[in-house]
């Protein structure tokens, strides 16, 4: 009798368990399916526009079929190079500051500033850099776009580099200090090399994060239908091209927007995956 009650309860609990399992598995499956759907569409639609001209020709006038997006590919590379040249030294030094003053009031203050910076919407960065760089320089430029992207990169890179510095065994530092080396040399010659791969990963992720940003470039890099290598002039970028082309009524540009999206996704994903596999090792 008693046994039966327990058995009944157990069956009910078991059933509930199975229901719950289904209730979480199905939505999780939807998420995975959506991801595959989006990726598949980018790959299938994007692959159609990949040809020689796409990579090596400049943009054609409005409504003309053909041409390519070399100006955007080169532009994105120039913008990312500018951004990383600015962001890497500052994030290294700021991360070192956090590492050296760990736990202090100032370091905690800096940390919360970094966290807050990370949450600033990227459109706001674009608006402010327009006032800070574009207006005084009297022109839209690759430089201003690079600066905007560097601010996108900074908080992410600072917190990643800080983490990798903190992973360096304290014994390394103590041993070197005990040998009488000045602290700055211990940092430069022992800590930084030991954290080297972490710094490299932070750089890679910083680039991956900034590569797809569009909003900070609208009012800074501005766009350019021609290939330009001039850092002081406006420049095109892959995300800008995607935005401009998909809004337009031209089928050829829609096609190219997918192609540019494929390039961008492949670039960002390979950076992410490469770093992901490195990290696991």
């Amino acid at each position: 009798m008693e046994n039966n009650v327990f058995a009944g309860q157990y069956r009910g609990r078991k059933r509930k368990d199975i229901f719950f399992r289904i209730a979480v598995m199905v939505p999780a499956g939807i998420v995975i399916a959506l991801l595959f759907l989006i990726l598949a569409q980018v790959v299938v639609n994007g692959a159609k526009s990949l040809n020689f001209d796409f990579f090596f020709q400049q943009q054609k006038p409005f409504g003309e079929i053909g041409g390519g997006i070399v100006q955007a590919i080169v532009g994105t590379l120039m913008l990312l190079a500018t951004a990383i040249v600015i962001a890497l030294p500052f994030s290294l030094l700021a991360a070192l500051y956090l590492y050296e003053h760990k736990g202090s009031k100032r370091a905690n203050g800096l940390l919360s500033v970094v966290n807050t910076l990370q949450g600033i919407p990227s459109i706001v960065i674009g608006v402010v850099i327009y006032s800070w760089v574009v207006v005084p320089m009297k022109t839209f430029s690759a430089l201003s776009g690079g600066i905007a992207l560097s601010i996108v990169m900074l908080p992410l890179m600072i917190s990643m580099i800080k983490e990798s510095l903190e992973m360096v065994p304290a014994s390394y530092v103590e041993a070197a200090l005990a040998l009488g080396a000045p602290r700055w040399r211990v940092i430069v010659e022992i800590v930084l090399p030991a954290a080297g791969s972490g710094i490299l990963e932070a750089t890679g992720l910083g680039i991956a994060r900034a590569a797809g940003e569009t909003a900070p470039l609208l009012f800074t890099a501005f766009g350019n239908p021609f290939l330009s290598l001039n850092f002081k002039g406006p420049i095109s970028a892959l995300p800008l091209v995607i935005y401009e082309y998909i809004k337009s009524p031209y089928d050829d540009w829609h096609q190219k927007a997918w192609g540019a999206a494929l390039l961008l996704v492949v670039f960002v994903l390979s950076l992410n995956l490469f770093i992901g596999t490195r990290k696991k090792r």
Partner: peptide
Amino acid sequence: RSILNTLINVLASIPSVVFGLWGIEV
């Protein structure tokens, strides 16, 4: 678990403008 992790990271790293493109067309 690591495959699922990677997949979620992949979704996280798709740029906003690509989501916009996908949204317009799909």
